[in-house]
């Protein structure tokens, strides 16, 4: 009666994530064969560093999408965070770690507002988060309109400097934040009641209510989490670039959603794995690395390719979902 073996079951629910992982390895292998020099530790570390902030936000977005919602505001939150930190440093000499804490506070308030508007006023998620997206983008520009680079900030310098030497690259401390959030995300999704409630809300909200689960509280918390992680992502982004620029990260929300979907999370909600998002982020980073290697493969091709990839995944998901429904009926 040993039904709790930890072997991955080849059930229908696991197909998306296995597809994701295989695609990642295939792509990496293909790229390594086609482009000498691609398969280097430096390259791999670089993909990590460039996409660390995306990964942090994507963990939060994974929970939102599993619950059946969406958060369009994350890109703007990053932009706002980065310019805020930069401006505070430049104009008031505020040490970055203080402004980072302030930003986290702002993120908390934003997440609470979004969550409450969606849950208690029953406004559509796309609308509330769309408005938040423009609000934060606008506020970012209000703070400052141009780029500000941050120099001589001890905290940022420390975060960039410290790290583990991996080959020719430096796995800086801020990348470890991503790893930490990733692990926390996996643990929360699998081992906390809150995490399981997220799956319940996304799977069948009315059932969840009937079963007595704290649906409203869960929904608000999800958006709080998303905004906080978006802010954290913004912080990591700022460290990575050591500058702030309000025009940045337009379209980031799509990057994040794309990573989550490619990672195997169902857009309709109720299923998905945080570890899948991890691979989704890497695949995304891979695709955008390719332009450097194929001169004809410009950035915009990458954009179209990612769009197609996301669409393909959604189609696979829809197809798999229909098959499951039909199997149950028979």
């Amino acid at each position: 009666m040993n039904s709790f073996k930890k072997l991955p079951k080849l059930s229908v629910n696991n197909i998306p994530i296995l597809t994701t992982i295989s695609i990642f390895f295939l792509m990496y292998a293909a790229a390594s064969i086609m482009f000498p020099g691609f398969f280097s530790l430096y390259n791999f570390v670089n993909i990590f560093k460039t996409n660390a902030f995306v990964g942090i936000i994507a963990v939060g977005m994974t929970f939102v999408i599993i619950s059946g919602g969406i958060d369009l505001s994350v890109g703007s939150v990053v932009a706002f965070t980065s310019i805020f930190i930069a401006k505070m440093h430049q104009s008031y000499g505020m040490p970055s770690w203080i402004s980072m804490l302030i930003c986290l506070g702002i993120g908390l308030v934003l997440g609470l507002s979004i969550g409450c508007l969606i849950t208690y006023f029953e406004l559509p998620e796309f609308l509330v988060t769309l408005v938040a997206m423009f609000l934060m983008r606008g506020l970012a520009y209000v703070v400052h309109q141009g780029t500000i680079s941050i120099q001589d900030d001890p905290f940022i310098a420390f975060m960039k400097r410290t790290g583990i030497r991996v080959g020719a690259g430096n796995l800086s401390l801020y990348v470890w934040v991503f790893i930490l959030i990733l692990i926390l995300g996996i643990l929360v999704s699998k081992y906390t009641r809150f995490g399981r409630n997220v799956y319940a809300v996304g799977g069948n909200e009315s059932s969840a209510v009937l079963m007595g689960l704290p649906v409203k509280r869960t929904k608000v918390l999800i958006y709080v989490m998303s905004s906080l992680l978006a802010t954290l992502g913004g912080i990591v982004f700022t460290i990575h670039l050591a500058s702030g620029k309000p025009h940045n990260t337009i379209g980031l929300e799509l990057h994040v959603i794309a990573s989550v979907v490619i990672g195997g999370t169902l857009l309709t909600g109720g299923a998905g794995r945080v570890i899948g998002t991890f691979f989704g982020v890497l695949i995304y980073g891979l695709v955008f690395k390719l332009p450097a290697y194929i001169s004809a493969f410009r950035e915009w091709w990458a954009q179209i390719l990612v769009g197609l990839l996301v669409l393909t995944f959604i189609l696979i998901q829809t197809f798999v979902a229909e098959k499951t429904a039909r199997a149950v009926e028979s």
């Binding site: 906390t192 009641r193 399981r196 319940a200 007595g212 299923a271």
Partner: peptide, 26 residues
């Protein structure tokens, strides 16, 4: 059937009142 079809049978029976380990975690 007002349950959660994508979750496992076991989880459907226990969701909301899952047994927890002493140091936390389901």
């Amino acid at each position: 059937v007002n349950l959660l079809p994508q979750l496992t049978v076991a989880e459907n029976i226990f969701i909301g009142r899952q047994p927890m380990k002493k140091r936390g975690g389901i």
